[in-house]
């Protein structure tokens, strides 16, 4: 079967299969961006590990940040099946030439942000990623299957942490509401621009990389999340939010904010990238040592 036949019959493309260059490039860009998001995402949450308010929460958070590093590994591995290597992709990230999710350019200024990220950001990630388990590219689809299991665990833990806060002291409730106020709109933006303004979406759909439009996935997220906010007794920061008998319809998203964060002007773009660059530079001597050791001790053939 040639590439188009595989796509038309909803089959899987594997690394050795013939594939159009544009398909390969689209996948490399998307998988790399996804991998970068996993590792940049370790920062805002890692920010609270040393300050977690109970040992149980500390353990949950350490495990979660560790999972995100693991997700990065799976995804860089999937990208490598397309003929690029991790070091090269990291260089592109560090040079600002490849992107990561805009959501991680917002600061985590309170403990409730950790809970809100689990609930909303992992929640939105699941909406986006579950369809990717049926992506036409086999290694990406399989990586997503593993990742989605862990993301849904993160989402449940986040929601549970949020539940405790919203049933807690007045200060905790306020913390929870404040986190929802700050994370709600950025979470909606995680689904990307409206379909009409998303030029590459149609081609990705035709290739079986993308299965649903941005707007449809966003709507599913809103429908799933608004009742959860109600359950928590928290107010979604959208005065225009309404129920049309079938769906919870949100108000207008401020796409100028999204465009600014994309451009590098979010509150933490510079901080996140500099942190990564610094960690990478600080680790250079260690990676060099590992390489030098390996070549000294390479078994003689």
């Amino acid at each position: 079967m040639d590439f188009q036949q595989v796509i038309d019959t909803d089959g899987r493309i594997e690394p050795r299969d013939q594939m159009p260059d544009a398909y390969r490039q689209t996948l490399v860009r998307q998988i790399a961006q996804h991998a970068h998001s996993e590792i940049i995402g370790m920062q805002p949450e890692g920010n609270w590990i040393t300050r977690a308010p109970s040992l149980r929460r500390k353990a949950i958070l350490v495990a979660k940040v560790q999972d995100e590093a693991g997700h990065g590994l799976y995804l860089y591995g999937a990208a490598e099946t397309l003929g690029v290597d991790r070091a090269e992709l990291l260089d592109l990230l560090h040079a600002g030439r490849q992107k990561y999710s805009t959501i991680f350019n917002y600061p985590t200024t309170s403990w409730a942000d950790v809970a809100a990220i689990g609930w909303l950001v992992d929640g939105a990630a699941i909406m986006n990623q579950v369809p990717l388990t049926r992506c036409s590219y086999g290694p990406y689809a399989r990586a997503m299957t593993r990742i989605c299991k862990e993301e849904s665990f993160h989402q449940r833990q986040g929601f549970e942490a949020m539940t405790v806060l919203s049933r807690g002291t007045a200060a905790q409730q306020q913390m929870a509401q404040d986190a929802l106020d700050r994370w709600w709109w950025p979470a909606l933006m995680m689904f990307g621009p409206p379909d009409a303004a998303s030029p590459n979406s149609a081609q990705s759909m035709a290739w079986g990389i993308k299965r649903f439009g941005n707007d449809e996935l966003r709507q599913r997220f809103v429908d799933a999340t608004v009742p959860q906010a109600e359950f928590l007794g928290l107010t979604v920061p959208d005065p225009a939010l309404s129920w049309d008998g079938e769906h919870h319809r949100s108000g207008e998203i401020d796409w100028t904010e999204f465009a600014e964060v994309m451009k590098g002007n979010g509150p933490c773009n510079r901080q996140r990238l500099e942190f990564r660059q610094q960690a990478h530079a600080d680790g250079a001597w260690v990676r060099e040592a590992a390489q030098a050791y390996a070549s000294k001790h390479r078994p003689v053939a």
Partner: peptide
């Protein structure tokens, strides 16, 4: 967290 020399680390 997030500062290690490699992702494996």
């Amino acid at each position: 967290a997030a500062r290690a020399p490699t992702l494996e680390e």
